[in-house]
């Protein structure tokens, strides 16, 4: 009997070890350990044994059972593991294949420039003022010290609708309107982005429609040094901390004194290149101290208040910042152009 049990154990463990899958293993379990299995069968013969031998044999039978059970469990773990491995192997993908594209759009490059400038000035306490694209001659010119017949009106040939209504040639009328709303009380601190229009034939450097951004500050003690400091902050934030600025005297009817601001060339850092026409400087914007006539016309006492204003073209900023070579790209909306402005530095 003892031998028979040992034999069964050996036989069962051999089969367990040879089992290929979990089903076969289960069959082995049922076959050897089940109620109708050979071990049970062997144990039925226990009655014939002596009282001494009976417990020994019982212990042996349990041991054999345990051995087989352990063998099966170990094999089961092994087979399950193999099954998982096989499944994983079957599920393997080429992780280098491209992912499912997520289609997102992005800001137009000009909006990007405008928002960057808006945010910069909002941080310095400015609010964003907007106004109509179709303007009264009064706000576009007269309130800005450009009376009818003023020669400087030639500088910006305009699209008139009637004698008194035109497409604004700059965003300065927004300044005039804002100042009027303030009814002679400062401070005024605004940044005015918007579309403007001039009679130009569209080519690589001209556009009949373009985007301007102007700023205006009026208060009781605004000095030209404040303008210089403000423009310096702007230039460094927009074009890099290492930029230097230079103010050159210029002329605008609505400011006196008037200046143009150059920044040190970001391409050659002032060494001289094609972008800066070998001068080391790039013209960025026009600015100046608000002309007393402009203040007075908007109801501000020019003895009490002073102010500064500046204005620039968003296209020019974008062209310099991103190296765009043709202003028409901004309005053609070629997908291949639009998509390039999704990256954020």
């Amino acid at each position: 009997m003892q031998e028979r049990l040992k034999e069964l154990q050996g036989e069962a463990l051999e089969k367990v070890s040879a089992a290929m899958d979990l089903k076969e293993l289960n069959d082995i379990r049922v076959a050897y350990l089940g109620k109708k299995g050979p071990i049970t069968e062997v144990l039925k013969g226990m009655g014939k044994l002596s009282a001494e031998e009976r417990p020994k044999m019982g212990a042996l039978a349990n041991e054999v059972r345990d051995q087989i059970t352990q063998g099966i469990t170990a094999k089961q773990v092994q087979l399950e593991e193999a099954q998982i491995q096989a499944k994983l192997a079957a599920e393997t993908i080429d992780v280098t294949l491209p992912g499912r594209p997520v289609h997102t759009g992005n800001h137009h490059s000009l909006t990007r420039v405008v928002e960057e400038i808006e945010d910069l000035f909002i941080g310095m306490g400015y609010t964003v003022a907007e106004g109509p694209e179709v303007e009264k001659d009064y706000y576009n010119f007269e309130a800005l010290n450009l009376p009818k017949g003023h020669p400087a009106r030639d500088m910006q040939d305009s699209f008139y609708i009637t004698e008194d209504i035109l497409l604004r040639t700059h965003t300065s009328p927004v300044q005039a309107r804002t100042m009027e709303k303030h009814e002679g009380k400062g401070p005024v601190k605004i940044i005015c982005p918007g579309k403007v229009f001039r009679r130009d034939n569209d080519d690589a450097t001209h556009s009949h429609q373009f985007m301007q951004i102007e700023g205006l500050v009026i208060d009781e003690n605004i000095r030209m040094t404040d303008l210089k400091g403000t423009l310096e902050v702007f230039a460094k934030k927009m074009f890099g901390e290492e930029r230097e600025i230079r103010l050159r005297p210029s002329f605008f009817p609505f400011t006196e004194p008037s200046v143009e601001m150059d920044i040190s060339c970001m391409i050659c850092s002032g060494e001289g290149c094609n972008v800066c026409k070998k001068t080391g400087w790039i013209e960025i914007l026009g600015a100046g101290m608000v002309h007393p006539n402009v203040l007075e016309m908007a109801g501000f006492d020019s003895k009490k208040y002073t102010g500064f204003a500046f204005g620039m073209g968003a296209e020019r900023i974008a062209m310099l910042k991103y190296g765009v070579d043709d202003i028409r790209h901004f309005y053609t909306n070629d997908s291949r152009f639009l998509k390039q402005f999704s990256i954020h530095e």
């Binding site: 401070p187 208060d219 040094t225 210089k228 400091g229 403000t230 310096e232």
Partner: peptide, 12 residues
Amino acid sequence: YDNLTSTLPGGT
């Protein structure tokens, strides 16, 4: 204008 200092607007 190179000789001007750089300041920022004061006031409130």
